[in-house]
């Protein structure tokens, strides 16, 4: 399958290894990855902060760039949620019939990374090896918008050497919420404290998720505390093999 990768702006800039891991996993499974270089941002940060007017051209841009893709892979639940939940509304509110039609046709081809593997490609064992104690954080968008359910867990359970430990309070938000983390920094920190406490209680070495935004937030506090826990995107865990450790 030819898979067009929308890496997302923050993964591109801050977490290039996530993108590299996505490419490695998909190519290992025999697929062809394409990367349209004109891509930038889905507009989520603008939209969620109240700048819907600024988000609209970014959304339109995304739809145009990926209109012809066979399948789109996005290693970020929150960006997928933005596209699925709010692109139709953005088109409607801006009375953009062309965009509305393009969104309609594009949406069935857009997948979050774990959805792509489990639903579209039908694999749970991607041939990974990752000999570490790992806990999985369910991001809110993955949990409630995309209903990822146990898809990421099924992928993790199939990884050789990996010891998966459940995270208490799985449905609880980590407190990131985009600009919420700075606009309501104190509340956000209180939420994050609860979340990192749960992570530390698992005694895992690695905390993984389908969203680097939550992970960046959790890593921010864990690093400050010298807690000895790494955060890694699911793709980076799945990219590990006996030859190349993730």
């Amino acid at each position: 399958m030819r898979i067009a990768l929308f890496i997302t702006c923050y993964n591109d800039t801050l977490f290039p290894r996530t993108g590299q891991s996505v490419v490695r996993v998909l190519e290992r499974l025999g697929h062809t990855v394409e990367f349209p270089l004109e891509q930038t941002c889905c507009g989520q940060m603008h939209f969620n902060t109240g700048y819907a007017r600024e988000a609209y051209p970014l959304a339109k841009r995304f739809v145009e760039i990926f209109a012809d893709a066979e399948t789109v892979c996005i290693p970020s639940s929150s960006c997928v949620a933005m596209i699925r939940e709010y692109y139709p509304a953005l088109a409607r509110e801006n009375e953009d019939a062309g965009m509305a039609a393009a969104v309609d046709s594009l949406l069935p081809r857009v997948f979050e990374f774990s959805e792509l593997l489990v639903d579209a490609l039908g694999v749970t064992d991607v041939g990974a090896y990752f000999p570490h104690r790992v806990t999985y954080h369910a991001s809110c968008h993955g949990l409630r918008s995309l209903h990822l359910g146990d898809k990421p867990l099924r992928l993790l359970r199939a990884v050789r050497g990996l010891e998966l430990v459940p995270l208490e309070g799985l449905e609880q938000c980590c407190g990131f919420g985009g600009t919420f983390a700075v606009k309501n920094a104190d509340v956000s920190a209180a939420m994050l404290t609860e979340k990192t406490r749960a992570v530390l209680n698992t005694r895992a070495e690695v905390c993984t998720a389908c969203d680097n935004s939550c992970l960046m937030h959790m890593q921010g506090m864990l690093h400050r505390q010298f807690a000895g826990v790494r955060t890694l995107h699911l793709a980076e865990v799945l990219a590990g093999t006996e030859d190349v450790l993730g």
Binding site: I7, N11, D12, Q20, K183, R224
Partner: peptide, 21 residues
């Protein structure tokens, strides 16, 4: 406000798109 309670990793030496190209 972020760094009051959280650290932030530095920007990596290479973006994904640079690696890809």
């Amino acid at each position: 406000r972020w760094t009051e309670t959280r650290d932030l990793a530095p920007l990596p030496q290479e973006t994904f798109r640079e690696w890809w190209q």
